[in-house]
Design a protein around this nucleic acid. Structure first.
Length: 418
RNA sequence: GGGGGAAUGUCCCGAGUGGCAAAGGGGGGGGACUGUAAAUCCCCUGGCGUACGCCUUCGUAGGUUCGAGUCCUACUUCCCCCA
């Protein structure tokens, strides 16, 4: 079956907006989606207190699923995170404690509420924690019930395993079991909720296929897998990695302003693709936007930033971020909505070394970095390049009640005495 | 079980003769040019210090030496050959 032949709205949308990389059984899945609401899940491991942009394509895919009249299941990996997914990783990650994992889950879960509608209806989203069943597995029972369906021969051939072996990096037995855990998840969800589809990133293909085959083998029931392409920018860089680290979705880790900026700085060649993936705009509108010539493409980037920020943080925050950016970049003015770092007024009066202030404001990783930045001409105070990072900042540097610090032209933080 | 290799700047790859803060890439940051883009060119890329400087780094732990990434010993992990 070619992609063009999809009958179901769900797969048509995914195809047209660029979500599909691989599907295990395209025709069957298409038929199932056409016949009625299907339940599909994506798992999210709780390795950090927030998801980042890399997971956004998955979240958006669940949104498309729901928009197409189906039921999204968000699986929090309380159990799988205890084991640790080796997929795409060079080396073992430190094992997280149970408390860390639970704290991460608590912190992560709220982002889904803005993208999905939760409830008890047929197409309402639900969220479950796989620790609920995984932690109850008994070792011998597990081996007898599930272990018999997996051959080492096969497991060794999966990329997640092969990568580690090829790089001569150790792969521990616990990590080796991860794909079995994930396959167990799928089977359990299939039995509990009639979940027939697991989706995920292309690095999850192996894990997903295992689940599909487990269900087909053990329960002789249909099950499907679908993966998204690996997201990279047109220049080949991994999506969502910036100087300051990952682009977190939680507002306390990355402000709406910075989130807006992230999208605003999209490469020309990515604008159309990102609009399709990360906004709800109609395809015709996107086609028009991405066709804008020359510098006008910047208008499309603003739309992208507005829409994407609104989806995550709400329209008000998006508007504030857009306003602050407009003021800072176009008018060269200050806006209260720029990222702000507060310092005690007394400390400022006494004087603070500029390099230390940069470090505290998060604009530099260390004082040394701030000094280098100054030498390179990228350190600015109140819009003026400052070559001496050792100079002292005091009340005298306040302009309209704040000191405007910038690392380069784009990263701005206002220092406000309190 | 025996024999032979390998682990390097806490992002990755990777040179390295006993004097090394350690070659060179990639990635990242800054500057110039632009459109808050890409491409290109230039600079920077362990921490602290205003500074002569001090501290911490080459799988782990010891040792030899005025001095060790470099030599020795043990351990850890990986690869190859023989069994």
């Amino acid at each position: 079956m070619t992609d063009a032949a999809f009958q179901s709205k769900f797969l048509q949308v995914l195809r047209d907006r660029g979500y599909i990389h691989q599907i295990t059984h395209p025709e069957e899945l298409d038929a199932a989606a056409l016949a009625g609401p299907v339940a599909a899940y994506i798992g999210f491991d709780a390795t950090a207190p927030s998801l980042h942009v890399g997971s956004l394509i998955q979240i958006m895919m669940l949104r498309r699923l729901q928009q197409s009249g189906h039921r999204p299941i968000v699986v929090m990996g309380g159990g799988t995170t205890k084991v640790g997914d080796p997929s795409g990783k060079d080396e073992s990650r430190k094992l997280l404690t149970e408390a860390d994992i639970q704290a991460n889950i608590a912190s992560i879960r709220s982002v889904f509420e803005t993208f999905l509608t939760f409830g008890d209806g047929a197409t309402d989203a639900i969220m479950v924690d796989n620790d609920e069943w995984l932690s109850k597995l008994g070792y011998i029972d597990f081996l007898r019930d599930y272990g018999v369906h997996f051959t080492i021969n096969r497991m060794l051939a999966f990329d997640s395993v092969k990568l580690r072996l090829d790089r001569e990096q150790p792969l521990t037995f616990i990590e080796f079991n991860y794909m079995l855990m994930q396959a167990t998840d799928f089977l359990e969800l299939n039995r509990r909720y009639g979940c027939v589809l697991q989706m995920g990133g292309s690095d999850q293909w192996g894990n997903i296929v295992n689940g599909v085959e487990l269900i087909r083998r053990v329960d002789q029931k249909p099950a499907f897998g679908l993966t998204t392409p690996l997201l990279a920018t047109a220049s080949g860089a991994k999506m969502g990695k910036t100087a300051q680290g990952a682009v977190w979705l939680n507002a306390d880790l990355r402000s709406p302003y910075d989130y807006w900026q992230f999208w605003r700085n999209t490469e020309d060649a990515d604008v159309g693709r990102f609009l399709r993936l990360f906004t709800d705009l109609p395809l015709e509108e996107i086609a028009r936007l991405e066709a804008l010539p020359g510098a006008e493409i910047n208008d499309a980037k603003k739309v992208l930033a507005n829409e994407a920020t609104a989806l995550l943080h709400g329209p008000e925050e998006a508007a504030k971020a857009a306003g602050a950016a407009e003021a800072a970049f176009v008018q060269g003015a200050l806006s209260d909505d720029l990222p702000t770092h507060e310092v005690p007024a007394a400390e400022l009066s006494a004087g603070i070394m500029l390099a230390a202030l940069f470090e505290a404001a998060g604009l530099a990783g260390s004082r040394g970095e701030a000094r280098r930045l100054a030498q390179g001409g990228g350190l600015r105070v109140n819009d003026k390049a400052e070559a001496d990072a050792n100079r002292t900042i005091t009340d005298a540097d306040l302009v309209d009640g704040v000191v405007k610090l910038a690392a380069g032209k784009k990263k701005i933080v206002l220092i406000r005495p309190v």
